[in-house]
């Protein structure tokens, strides 16, 4: 009877298993296979070159530059987006702020705007004679004007600003959902025990949202590794590689320059980094009972 049930269960899950197997795992395996080939022609690869592409990658300064950009971008966006999202969710969870639904709608809006639209808008806003510089001049902060998308010292941070603008609402939504699940009795007990507002937030609420923090950190860093539309559409990875990410580099190698073998190698690196990061973080959190 049990064997029968297992068989029926297998039939039900087989479409998903086949789909995931073919689309995801076969894709990954094919990319790995491609990374061991000399594949710089439009036709299928024929020559195996072992791990030569990996050796090339280990000596490629653009890869290290891209990894550095991912780290900086990931650290800043995750930290700021989480802080702002958490702060906004806590502020709007009580009834001290009027017209909360309107605030929530405004905070939520950027996440539903297509990155292509965001990119075009910010390219205009951040141009030398764009609205951001005009606004800075208007409020008397003209000395803060920048060549936001042209100065190599600033461009990566410009992308960080755009990303924060678009994705803070995602942190906000997750924190808001988590806050609605909190046990109100604990909060009331803390209040009775004399805890002030800051203590309730830092000692009671924040620790109870560890799961949400972890989800946002994992998704944020993996998102940073996968970031493509923003640098591609806003800066094209430039100027002078100052906003090059692994994804833009993969696109350049594979699509623009037909280097499928090396592009596959870079994709394998991206895949390994994402998996390693997730596994390490999940293990650590389990050990700490998060």
């Amino acid at each position: 009877m049990k064997r029968n049930q297992n068989g029926i269960g297998l039939i039900f899950i087989s479409p998903s298993l086949i789909l995931v197997g073919v689309v995801v795992y076969f894709g990954i395996a094919y990319t790995f296979w491609g990374s061991t080939r000399e594949w710089s022609d439009i036709r299928s690869p024929s020559t195996s070159i072992g791990f030569a592409n990996f050796e090339k990658m280990a000596q490629d300064p653009t890869v290290y530059m891209a990894l550095k950009h991912i780290l900086i971008f990931g650290f800043l966006t995750v930290l700021i987006q989480m802080s702002l999202g958490f702060f906004a969710a806590v502020m709007l969870s009580g009834d001290t702020i009027i017209a909360r639904n309107i605030h929530k709608t405004f905070i939520f809006l950027p996440v539903i705007i297509s990155p292509a639209v965001t990119a075009i808008s910010f390219r205009q806003l951040m141009s030398p004679d764009g609205e951001i510089n005009s606004f800075l001049r208007f409020i008397g902060l003209g000395f803060l004007q920048q060549e936001w998308l042209a100065d190599t010292r600033v461009t990566l941070f410009s992308l960080v600003i755009i990303n924060i603008w678009q994705w803070t609402s995602f942190s906000f939504i997750l924190y808001q959902a988590a806050l609605s699940q909190l046990d109100q009795e604990i909060l009331e007990a803390a209040e009775i025990d004399g805890a002030n507002y800051r203590q309730v937030i830092t000692r009671i609420i924040a620790p109870q949202l560890k799961g949400t923090h972890l989800t946002l950190i994992i998704m944020g860093f993996i998102g940073s590794m996968k970031t493509f539309e923003l640098p591609f559409l806003v800066t094209g990875g430039g100027p002078a590689g100052s906003t090059e990410f692994l994804t833009t580099y993969i696109f350049d190698q594979t699509v623009s320059r037909f280097k499928f073998g090396y592009g596959s190698t870079l994709s394998v690196l991206l895949c390994i980094l994402s998996i390693t990061f997730t596994v390490v973080l999940l293990r650590n959190s389990r050990q700490r009972n998060m």
Binding site: M126, S127, D129, E147, L149, A150, T235
Partner: peptide
């Protein structure tokens, strides 16, 4: 060459 040129595409901006 104007300021901000490195962030300006020739086509179409």
């Amino acid at each position: 060459i104007q300021k901000g040129a490195l962030g300006t595409p020739q086509y179409m901006d």
